[in-house]
């Protein structure tokens, strides 16, 4: 893959993708009852070239919505109310749909959650992989075929299975095919939306390894959405911990794992099993994530927090800078200065 820049070049550049104050709401369709749900509020993070960012949090905390907002693929009820998505010097929220279509896949691609559903069941795998290439007029049909072979080889699928349908593939192969598809137009940023869910542990490891190899070979930036902190520890450079549609903590993998500041991050880490002490009962966080139509005032985590202060239920904690590139939104951290976002 000679058309890519070397993986090391990214260190001096600024972020390739920076999300700022992204706020997304889901409004109920006209004529139906119900309140608007604020799925994302004031979400900011950076993605550096050829690095992996993990988006973690419980179900419904806005991980997938963040990806879909950035790609502008929200369902018709979704609305981005404010914020910026700066990608290669342009604000993706400001350009029109026609231009956005050119950005999609060519510059940022996505590996969807659940590969079976994301593949068209009546289309051959090879055709689906070449679809984006032909759509973006990147090359003629013959070259596209060659490219498909090359992509399949890269993800470890024998060329002979190119003309098969998705139902003839195993779960792991489908996920590999999805990854091959995402790489078809050589994007700069790859979004992976829970790429390992519904796969068994062996295949999970294989898929993660594949992602890592591909990143090494192609030098692309990956945004990995997952609720598996083990996965994050294994592959991510930096981590965004989300709760109730807001960023709770944001820092490098080391900062998050070894110096977690936000009570939510601490509880989340404590609720994962430790190989070294297998006999202890797993800790859990009491309560459930907030309903997005009925968010609590102040800090969104305060109803479940065991170290909350009086003002936690009244004042929304700002994202505070703890050390370089490590931020958390909690009133307990009063000494830091507000984040530069």
């Amino acid at each position: 893959m000679s058309e890519r820049r070397p993986a090391t070049a990214g260190s001096v550049e600024g972020p390739i993708l920076s999300v700022r104050h992204l706020t997304t709401e889901f409004v109920p369709p006209k004529g139906t009852q119900g309140k608007a749900a604020r799925a994302l509020e004031d979400v900011s993070f950076d993605v550096m070239p050829s690095q992996t960012v993990g988006l973690v949090g419980e179900s419904g905390c806005g991980k997938t919505t963040t990806l879909m907002s950035v790609m502008r693929l929200l369902p018709s009820t979704g609305r981005i109310t404010s914020g910026q998505v700066n990608f290669k010097g342009k604000d993706l929220l400001a350009i029109d749909e026609r231009e956005m279509r050119k950005v999609r896949w060519k510059e940022m691609a996505i590996v969807f959650q659940g590969a079976m559903n994301a593949l068209n069941p009546v289309m051959k795998i090879g055709v689906q992989i070449s679809e984006a290439i032909i759509l973006h007029d990147m090359m003629d049909r013959d070259a596209a075929e060659k490219r498909v072979d090359q992509l399949l080889e890269m993800v470890g699928i024998p060329r002979t299975r190119r003309d098969q349908y998705p139902h003839q593939y195993s779960g792991g192969m489908r996920q590999r095919a999805m990854i091959a598809m995402a790489l078809a137009c050589s994007p700069d940023v790859l979004f992976a939306d829970e790429p390992t869910t519904a796969l068994d542990v062996m295949i999970q490891a294989q898929v993660l390894e594949l992602l890592r190899d591909i990143q090494k070979a192609l030098g692309l930036a990956i945004v990995l959405v997952t609720h598996d902190l083990g996965v994050v520890a294994e592959v991510c450079d930096s981590v965004v911990v989300m709760y109730g549609g807001k960023v709770a903590e944001y820092g490098s993998a080391d900062q998050i794992y070894n110096h977690a500041q936000h009570p939510y991050t601490q509880r989340l880490l404590a609720s994962f099993p430790d190989v070294n002490s297998p006999t202890t009962q797993l800790a859990s966080i009491p309560g459930t994530p907030p309903r997005l139509t009925d968010l609590p005032g102040g800090c969104r985590f305060h109803p479940r927090c065991d170290v909350k202060l009086a003002k936690c239920s009244e004042v929304i904690p700002p994202l505070i800078s703890i050390s370089e590139d490590h931020y958390a939104a909690c009133h307990l951290l009063c000494q830091g200065q507000e984040a530069r976002f």
């Binding site: 279509r101 050119k102 999609r104 896949w105 996505i110 969807f112 659940g114 994301a118 068209n120 679809e131």
Partner: peptide
């Protein structure tokens, strides 16, 4: 509403 249609949209298809 199937996901492969949103994938097609994500590819940049009209």
């Amino acid at each position: 509403e199937r996901q492969f249609v949103s994938r097609a949209r994500a590819i940049g298809a009209g």
